[in-house]
């Protein structure tokens, strides 16, 4: 992953790990890289990596096992999916509708397109 310098890197780290959990790339109870491994792999400051991981521990997404490392919390995927579902319409659907209105696509065309996917 490539970090951009327009927002704090520790937040970008936290977001990336959350996405990996939501998509299943990281399984629940799976061990994640240590902050030092993560820092070396992505060539970033170890304190920055540690801050990103600490944020995820605070949010209950990761948990620590003393002397072993950090793991994905057992309920992390559900927790994150619920959070993203809550913001789905505001973050994804509303901008799409604004764009459709701006360029003159009627909402019924969008509905028709969505129906062509069947009931997923």
């Amino acid at each position: 992953m490539v970090f951009d310098d327009r927002s704090p890197i520790y937040l970008q780290i936290a977001e990336q790990i959350k996405t990996d959990i939501v998509t299943g790339a990281l399984a629940e109870d799976e061990q994640v890289m240590s902050t030092n491994q993560y820092a070396a792999f992505y060539r970033i400051n170890p304190a920055t990596a540690a801050k990103g991981f600490a944020q995820l521990v605070d949010e209950g997404v990761l948990y620590k096992r003393r002397g072993i490392g950090m793991f994905v919390a057992p309920n992390a995927r559900d927790l994150l999916r619920t959070g993203r579902r809550d913001s789905f319409f505001a973050d994804v659907v509303d901008p799409m509708i604004r764009e459709a209105k701006a360029i003159g696509i009627p909402l019924k065309d969008i509905l028709q397109h969505i129906r062509s996917y069947g009931d997923a």
Partner: peptide
């Protein structure tokens, strides 16, 4: 330079 950055982080850690 990338070698330097890697070596710096590893030794600093």
């Amino acid at each position: 330079r990338n070698l330097f950055y890697d070596a710096l982080l590893a030794d600093y850690t």
